[in-house]
Structure formats: structure tokens, C-alpha cells
């Protein structure tokens, strides 16, 4: 009954990539619009009505830009790094279900490419791989700014991943499964944000650090390191890093939604997928809001915060949850 043949998976993957790219393009537009409004500006409004053709213009520009590779760069790794970033970003999204399986006639179409029984682990694995793109890109550029950006990024992502994993375990203990759709099902009566408030806060802070957004955007700290790890990148390769960053943003927003906000669950007057999109949009908006408002943390403070505050609290949270699950 489940048509999970190779053909079906390929079709779903293609659809996912196209959808993600479109969402990325318009997310970029909306981010610029929202930032504009936060800044008392208009935002892009010249290309097309309400600036709607702006993503196309951006894309065309990026493709036609000269592709510059620094003379001293390690050419192979330099070209490989953005590919890693982009691949990992898309691959991570593969296990995210955006709604319950869709029934069309007697076909059942699952709304994710795969729903493995270790979905959370797959996600963690892929998001951890993302650091390679950044570290290698920064290293291969042979620029000091890129190098510093890459070093910072590596340190930051590794330290915050720990907290992220720790806070995740709380949810997994409560749900009793690593499969994302099971976790959503487990939130039928009560969202995990209510039962795991500390875990939610920890998780959200660490994913912000994980995707390098303000106030944790140190790897690309514009005013210190020019553009951090992608200083030397131009044209489409630069765009690949940008796409990866935004897709990661969508991924982690979806993850927060799935783990803590009941995924696609919501009152029945809207279809589940719409609920899911609304919740994800809320978190994406939160990312943009923070970007407009918050200053950047200093590197040493960031590390200290990660190791001395976030990690111990995450441990405590985990122990408390485990005790509750064991003795209830």
C-alpha cells in the first residue's frame, strides 16, 4: 500500500528541493522586508510588485557574478566546502515530516522523504556535519579572516551541539521514541513545551547558535571578521552558503516545532500542514526579530555561556526528566 519505491522517493526529494529553494528565496525576501520595517525602511520594493521578483533578481545576479578563487586557496577544498554545507542542509530536512501521511484515493503519501525510527539521530548527525563546510571553507580560503571565522565556528558549533543533544534527550525520554512522527503523536494531549520548558529554552538557544544567527553569529561577525568563513567566496558558491544557512534555519525551526510545539497538531479548522507552517513561520520570524534587535556576544563569553551555564542546566534538566520518567 505504501508506495515507497525508489521512484516515489526520488519524486518526493525533487519536490522537497524545489519547495525548499523557493521557500529559501522568499524567506530571504521576507527577512529583508521585515528587517526594513524594523529599521523604519521600506525594504526591497523595486523589482516586481511589492518586491516579489527580488529573489529572482538575486538569483540571476549570483549566477552571473564572477566566481573568484583566491590565488593561494586550496582549490579542491575551496570548491567542496559550499557543496558540503548545502548537501547537509538539504539532507537534514529529509527526515522532517511536515504533516501526517496524506491519503489520496488509496495512495498514502508520507509528507517526508523518510521517517526512520532514529529520525532525531539522523538529524543531529547531519547538523553536526554542517560544521565541516564552514571549517573547510574557512581553512581553504587562505585568508586570516576566514580562518578566524572557521575556528570560531567549529568551537561554537561543537559546544552548543552538546547542549542541544542534552536537551533533546528530555523529549525523547518523554516520548519514548526517536522517530519524529512518534514524538508528535506523543504530544497529543499536551505539548512538550509545557512539560519541558527548560529544555525548550535551552534547545532554542542552542539551535540559534547552531545556525549561526544573531546573537551568536560570531563565525561571520560582520564588523570584526568582515564576513568570517565566507569572506573569500563570491557568486554561486557564496549563494550556496547562504542557501545552506537559510535552509538550516528552516530545519531547526521545524525541529523546534516538532519536538516542543506539537508539530502539525492544532485545532481542526486548519489542515495540519498549515498549522505546521504557521508554527515554523513563527520561529523563523523570531530569528529575524532577534537579528534586528540584539547585539552580538563576544566569543569568549559565548564559549563560557555554552560550557558553564547551558551545559550544566541541560544536564540537570535531563536528570530531572529521567527521574520523573522512572518514578512516576
Amino acid at each position: 500500500m505504501v508506495a515507497d519505491s525508489l521512484v516515489a522517493v526520488t519524486i518526493r526529494s525533487l519536490v522537497l528541493i524545489i519547495v525548499l529553494l523557493t521557500v529559501f528565496a522568499y524567506l530571504m525576501l521576507f527577512e529583508r522586508k521585515f528587517l526594513g520595517w524594523f529599521h523604519l525602511r521600506l525594504g526591497p520594493n523595486r523589482t516586481g510588485p511589492w518586491g516579489l521578483a527580488q529573489p529572482i533578481a538575486d538569483g540571476v545576479k549570483m549566477i552571473f557574478k564572477e566566481d573568484i578563487i583566491p590565488r593561494d586557496a586550496d582549490r579542491f577544498i575551496f570548491k567542496l566546502a559550499p557543496v558540503i554545507s548545502l548537501f547537509v542542509a538539504f539532507a537534514a530536512f529529509a527526515v522532517i515530516p511536515v504533516g501526517p501521511p496524506l491519503k489520496i484515493g488509496n495512495w498514502t503519501v508520507p509528507l517526508s522523504i523518510a521517517d526512520p525510527n532514529a529520525g532525531v539521530l539522523v538529524l543531529l548527525a547531519f547538523t553536526s556535519l554542517g560544521v565541516y563546510g564552514i571549517a573547510l571553507g574557512g581553512w581553504a580560503s587562505q585568508s586570516k579572516y576566514s580562518l578566524l571565522g572557521a575556528l570560531r565556528s567549529t568551537a561554537q558549533m561543537i559546544s552548543y551541539e552538546l547542549t542541544m543533544g542534552m536537551s533533546l534527550v528530555g523529549v525523547i525520554l518523554l516520548a519514548g521514541s526517536l522517530r519524529l512522527s512518534d514524538i508528535v503523536t506523543a504530544q497529543e494531549s499536551l505539548w512538550f513545551i509545557v512539560r519541558q520548558p527548560v529544555g525548550f529554552i535551552l534547545f532554542f538557544i542552542s539551535v540559534v547558535a547552531e545556525v549561526n544567527r544573531v546573537p551568536f553569529d560570531l563565525p561571520e561577525a560582520e564588523t570584526e571578521l568582515v564576513a568570517g568563513y565566507h569572506t573569500e567566496y563570491s557568486g554561486m558558491r557564496f549563494a550556496m552558503f547562504a542557501i545552506a544557512e537559510y535552509v538550516n534555519m528552516i530545519t531547526v525551526s521545524s525541529l523546534v516545532t516538532l519536538l516542543y510545539l506539537g508539530g502539525w497538531r492544532g485545532p481542526a479548522f486548519l489542515p495540519p500542514v498549515v498549522w505546521f507552517l504557521l508554527k515554523v513561520s513563527f520561529f523563523v520570524f523570531l530569528f529575524i526579530w532577534m537579528r534586528a534587535t540584539l547585539p552580538r556576544l563576544r566569543y569568549d563569553r559565548l564559549m563560557a555561556f555554552g560550557w558553564k551555564v547551558m551545559l550544566p542546566v541541560a544536564f540537570l534538566n535531563l536528570v530531572a526528566t529521567a527521574a520523573w520518567v522512572a518514578f512516576r
Binding site: 523604519l40 525602511r41 553569529d217 537579528r291
Partner: peptide, 15 residues
């Protein structure tokens, strides 16, 4: 503000 990452600051101040 801008240097420290508070992007909106420069627009508000310039306004």
C-alpha cells in the same frame, strides 16, 4: 550599535 550587532540602531539614530 551597528558595530556591536544592533542593526536597527543606526537607522533609528539617523532618523
Amino acid at each position: 550599535g551597528l558595530d556591536l550587532g544592533v542593526q536597527s540602531m543606526i537607522m533609528y539614530a539617523f532618523d
